[in-house]
Write a protein that binds this DNA or RNA. Structure first.
Lengths: 310, 310
DNA sequence: TCCATATAATTGCCTTCAGCAACTAATAGA
DNA sequence: TCTATTAGTTGCTGAAGGCAATTATATGGA
């Protein structure tokens, strides 16, 4: 069994577990008179005012005729009414009545209570771990309704040094085939960064979203007048957000505020995306040369930005 | 909304997502003539020879009468037979016939293919992340059938250096309140380990289970006669498995095989569990002294093991 | 030893579920 | 203006599946 087959088998095992664990709870919904389909429709109605029957059918994967009948049933109980028609007279947006809300509310509360009961045996750190895992699954299986949190920049704390080294190591291995010596180089730089850390002259930014590492950048003192930008990294998952620019902008702003006169950085010709970011800030290529490292033949470059200008 | 209510809401959101995403796929099982219940029963039958109808009903949450009818249907198609009765004549263990297996096999393969298709858009690191998340969810929601894989020891590869540093940093921060300078120390040691790596004299072991980091240990050359054991770490989740002993045993065996005459290690008085492991291998405390590091006052110790003995 | 009680499996009865196709009404496109 | 498409409804129907009664066997006391 190869890797993807194994992963798929895991996914199936999870699905069986989940239908067993959750599905059964739902089947005859919490000893109300309502079927699972009815509850799902009610939930949608309560969450989104004015949905169309056709939307419900499509999104919940139900037969349109069946949905029509379910809705007819709700209408008979006066749980829903048809909203004043829009321009298109075929459409009849559905809204829950007060009675409908009242009928749904205890179900909703009950289901909430069940979920809480499931979490009760877990301590808060486990709950957080569970929450992250659930979010990860949804994200990776492409839940479009999953609202992403904001990107936050923060300074470093324990665990970050290793994380930054690890992501450098894995990413550059994946994308450029560099071997573990690159990761070691980064680890060494990071180690020195912490050991000689000058809070007034140096800084790092870790970008996260929902606790997930998205990228980082470091500014270290090269000499009294020169700041060095190091270890700019943007996760593939975060590309296209302008995160690289944002991180470099922080560095430049910081360096200016600390009265550095110039900023330099070392990079590599294969890193196209990064180069474009540097260029956009006015960095100029001042030196380059071939070298061999990390199991590859590379062209290293030194870029410089005059901070005194403009 | 307090914390647990929020978490419960997340769980419910996940359940809705999952039933939408997976449930629907299953409903009318892959355009075969079989219902979801039939497929679930078939799956159980194929996985466990000789189950009882009552077990199926209980474990899948189905009505016994319904199960009986499903099985009668299968029996009519000659997909199952009743195994020779056990001592208890009420019980009729069910076994799949060859025809039953043949009927299930394409379904199973199809479902496997569907799962693979779902994973196809994910690269391998995302797949690993997904697999971990799925496993976490099952573990935390108490899936008793979750069998843990074997613990495997392997050598290092890109990403490990950072991971090892990160776990040192986070764990020691959590458990002993050491600050990020400890992580930096570890990162520096790791960087030098890779940069000066002598494949014939040095080695590291990373312990994993199901792709999850469980612990590590390193052996580096101190001088021609002396091996140094460094960075022994066992994750809290893996404690009690004897992993610490196993890792140290690998180190000692390796050092012996490379003709080192002694093995030394540096540790700290607060690390009780590790000390016991060292003692059990015959390490003797040869030196200790107070020092301040990582924001704490500590007692560092040097231990030594004579490899020439016995 | 015998009886009350429990477990395993089956069957009859019945309601609800839910797929399919035909149908109406309104709209959009050519 | 004609045609195709979309939104929603309705009739028909087989299957799903809950509940209770029934049979056969086991088991644990008195």
């Amino acid at each position: 069994m190869n890797r993807i087959q194994h992963d798929a088998a895991q996914l199936r095992a999870f699905n069986r577990f989940h239908t067993g664990r959750i599905g059964v709870l739902n089947e005859r919904m919490l000893d109300s008179r309502l079927s699972l389909a009815q509850v799902r429709v009610l939930y949608e109605l309560s969450a989104r005012n004015g949905v169309l029957a056709s939307q419900l059918a499509r999104e919940l994967g139900l037969d349109p005729g069946y949905v029509s009948r379910l809705l007819a049933g709700f209408r008979r109980k006066r749980w829903i009414t048809t909203a004043p028609a829009s321009a298109d007279k075929r459409r009849r947006p559905i809204v829950l009545t007060k009675a409908g809300r009242a009928a749904f509310e205890p179900l909703d509360r009950r289901s909430q209570t069940e979920a809480e009961a499931m979490l009760a045996p877990l301590d808060s750190s486990r709950r957080r771990r569970l929450g992250e895992a659930l979010r990860t699954v949804r994200e990776l299986l492409g839940d479009s309704s999953l609202a992403a949190g904001p990107v936050v920049l923060r300074s470093h704390r324990p665990g970050d040094i290793g994380m930054v080294a690890q992501r450098h190591g894995e990413l550059y291995a994946q994308e450029y085939g560099w071997d573990e010596r690159f990761e070691a180089l980064v680890a060494g730089i990071l180690a020195r960064f912490i050991e000689n850390f000058k809070a007034e002259r140096e800084r790092c930014w870790i970008a996260e979203r929902d606790g997930q590492f998205l990228g980082c950048v470091f500014v270290v003192e090269k000499d009294a007048d020169t700041a060095q930008l190091r270890m700019l990294l943007v996760e593939p998952a975060a590309r296209g957000l302008g995160l690289g620019k944002q991180l470099v902008a922080e560095c430049v702003r910081f360096a200016r505020s600390k009265r550095y006169r110039r900023m330099v950085l070392w990079t590599n010709s294969v890193l196209d995306a990064a180069r474009h970011v540097y260029e956009s800030f006015g960095f100029r290529l001042v030196e380059q040369g071939k070298h061999s490292a990390f199991g590859k033949d590379l062209v290293e470059q030194t870029w410089e930005l005059d901070l005194a200008a403009n």
